[in-house]
């Protein structure tokens, strides 16, 4: 269904959801925007030239969470997380797409992560398309787009004084009940806005044969070149909406077993108990990060593990740019495989 939501009516609508849901929306934190729970005084921030600093994956996979609490005499009990039904408002299409990609890892036949699943089932996502796409994003390059609908219950298009509300599920429809229908003309205008946004985005790098090139050049000097100025911090991976690695640690003083975000860019990530480290330097770690997204994801689920949100590009402390790295990868030699 296509509806119209006047912007001045938005605050009341958001507040009306609070009775039944925890509502999360981007709000100002210091000098950036961050998904935080709606309060009486919340101010929605969507005018920034780009996405929230931390991706909303943190709402599904928190930076740190207790899994198990230890009790006296060697026993343990569930940490008993209470997860309320919730609405994530103004999630950007790249981030919603990322959450859907992560389902392939957390919801599997052999094993499903119960906390992930519960959060997924209890969440309604109201997406806000990017009518002015950010400069560092490259969603169209990796096969998505500024108005990508994957994993959204609702997609909003900013039309100036009002939003076009496209409901994409029953749950989404219920949240926007009672709004007037959008005229065909309004929808047509919104489609133009969507198309223009899409057309504004340049091709950041070619994806054709990229997987093969990265694979076949596993031992190339290329990795040395692109990792030279890497500091080995976790900015790119922690801000990334599709990076999902975690580490499980027993915090004995808290008597908790916790799950923390972890990253392949850290030395300790692949360090083995013997002292051996199969990825001893930033060369191998950088290769892992890029190959995971542009080779291994494809091997496993036939999708690129990057949604082009641009956060790694913006916040890398040394200005390393994955787009430039992959453009350079495209110049590597490779042989066409005729197998299968």
């Amino acid at each position: 269904m296509n509806l119209i939501l006047e912007k001045h009516a938005l605050p009341d609508l958001l507040q009306s959801w609070r009775g039944n849901y925890d509502v999360y929306l981007p709000q100002k934190m210091e000098r950036f925007s961050h998904f935080m729970p709606l309060t009486d005084n919340s101010v929605l921030v969507t005018h920034e030239p780009h996405n929230t600093r931390i991706s909303p994956k943190a709402l599904f996979l928190p930076m740190t969470e207790a899994l198990v609490k230890f009790t006296r005499f060697g026993g343990y009990e569930d940490a008993q997380q209470v997860i309320q039904p919730r609405i994530i408002f103004a999630i950007r299409p790249c981030d919603a797409q990322a959450v859907q990609l992560l389902d392939t890892s957390f919801i599997q036949e052999a094993y499903t992560d119960p906390l992930w699943l519960e959060r997924r089932e209890k969440t309604i996502t109201v997406g806000l398309g990017c009518h002015e796409p950010c400069q560092t994003g490259f969603c169209t390059t990796v096969g998505y787009g500024p108005f990508n609908k994957a994993d959204l219950d609702v997609l909003l298009t900013d039309m100036g004084d009002a939003y076009l509300v496209e409901t994409l599920s029953k749950a989404g429809e219920d949240c926007f009940q009672g709004l007037p229908c959008a005229s065909d003309e309004f929808v047509e205008q919104a489609l133009i806005v969507q198309r223009n946004a899409h057309d504004q985005m340049p091709v950041a790098f070619e994806t054709e044969n990229l997987k093969e090139k990265l694979e076949q050049n596993f031992n190339s000097d290329y990795w040395e070149t692109v990792s030279q100025s890497c500091l080995g911090c976790g900015v790119c991976t922690f801000l990334c909406p599709t990076c999902f690695c975690f580490d499980i640690v027993d915090e004995t003083q808290r008597r908790e077993r916790v799950r923390n975000w972890d990253t392949c860019m850290f030395r300790t990530y692949s360090l083995e108990a013997s002292g051996h480290n199969p990825r001893p330097s930033k060369v191998e770690r950088t290769r892992q990060r890029l190959s995971h997204k542009f080779v291994y994801w494809l091997d496993q689920v036939n999708q690129i593990g990057c949604t082009g949100c641009g956060r790694c590009v913006r916040y890398c402390p040394v200005g390393l740019d994955i787009r430039a790295m992959l453009r350079q990868a495209q110049t590597l030699p490779f042989e066409v495989s005729h197998a299968g």
């Binding site: 930076m63 500091l231 911090c233 976790g234 900015v235 975000w261 402390p317």
Partner: peptide, 12 residues
Amino acid sequence: ERCIRCYACREA
């Protein structure tokens, strides 16, 4: 408490 433990400060 805004820290995400990425250790960019350390590495820089």
